[in-house]
Design a protein around this nucleic acid. Structure first.
Lengths: 202, 202
DNA sequence: TATATAAATGAATGAACGTTCATTTATATA
DNA sequence: TATATAAATGAACGTTCATTCATTTATATA
């Protein structure tokens, strides 16, 4: 950070300020003046760093999605040695870790997709689909190999992501439970919901 | 509907128009002029029916939450004869049915909580907590009676609601699966995640 | 049908919005 | 240190916003 030029530092600070305000009040309800105020600069100065408010939102969401996909890619080597079930556990842990580390970014890309214009929405949607299909592929592969069982890969994918995403709605650093507890609890829930000897009736 | 006075009809239409626009673009991004345009009336005329834009949002969210809680209350008699597990299934089915019937209202009360002012936010939050505690009580009771098993009732409650809420993000009337399929799939997932003989390790 | 009330109009209010721009000030490079 | 470039200022632009209001039009009641 300290080796960055003043301009880059300001740009970075603007992204952080915008992120925090967007998370708190929503994109449409936050003004450029409010964002500028957080750094103690004038609203006009923002335009030395970003061409528009829309571009700030897009940058936040794109940076986040690219980061997410890249971090998952990095685990590829490690992953290739694992069983279907352990890969699923890796995904769950990875996802939870990311939610804990980047809870604001996750919340933002969840809530503000609709504030993107058509072009940007389409770009981010592609990245989201890419991420969703990672989980779906894990599930399908596991089912084909008879290491997992469930009714419908598409809905199960969405349900699991829904389960995990609930995290970003309540997680706060200072909470009652540590990351390890949370990973364990969620893993138990998810594992049991797709294990091969699950029950089909009450 | 046809036995309502013109004023009541317009008020109802305004709520529907506002609901649809808020769902599509978000509260802050929708103007009173847009809402009025949907009915072919002037923006000023809205104020014969509602005192403010904020009040329209509040009415939408409060009506929805009161409806939700009331509908659950109505099932009380039926519920008293059921086992812990069947009550949980009733809750899951009830929740899914509601999400399917009122997907827009559900989505709205999920996304626009933060657009409420302090006073209104507090009122709706109370209603939401009330609903959440219904599920938590079911889980705790089931665990005490050894008919359910899980690690943490608070997180498990949030996780299950997260799972179910993912429905409002992808469900569309014309989809591939019927309501019955969806109820079955979700029930299998949830039931297996909290059943007493779940596994704790891979 | 006459009349009281309800609902809609259309213009106006002041405030806030994203963005632009000429100018000034700060930073980095030589 | 001199100079080119980057960053910030502060006022202004044209729009749009939620809301108000005097007036007109429609509806319901008697």
């Amino acid at each position: 950070m300290s080796n960055l030029s003043k301009g880059k530092k300001t740009a970075k600070s603007l992204l952080v300020a915008a992120r925090d305000l967007f998370v708190l009040n929503g994109y449409a309800a936050v003004s450029m003046r409010e964002i500028a105020l957080k750094l103690g600069i004038n609203a006009g100065a923002i335009y030395n760093h970003f061409p528009s408010k829309q571009e700030i939102l897009f940058r936040l969401l794109e940076d986040h999605m690219l980061d997410l996909l890249e971090q998952w890619d990095i685990l590829e080597v490690e992953r290739s040695k694992l069983s279907d079930l352990l890969i699923l556990r890796m995904f769950v842990n990875f996802h939870i870790n990311f939610h804990i580390d980047k809870s604001k970014e996750v919340f933002l890309s969840y809530m503000e997709l609709r504030s993107l214009d058509r072009r940007n929405f389409s770009k981010i949607s592609k990245l989201r689909d890419e991420y969703e299909s990672i989980l779906q592929n894990i599930l399908v592969l596991g089912k084909n190999n008879k290491n997992l069982d469930f009714d419908d890969s598409q809905i199960t994918t969405k349900a699991i992501l829904g389960t995990l995403s609930s995290l970003s709605h309540w997680y706060h650093q200072k909470g009652r439970l540590g990351a390890e507890d949370i990973r364990k609890i969620y893993w138990h829930l998810i594992f049991n919901s797709v294990r091969t000897d699950r029950k089909r009736n009450v």
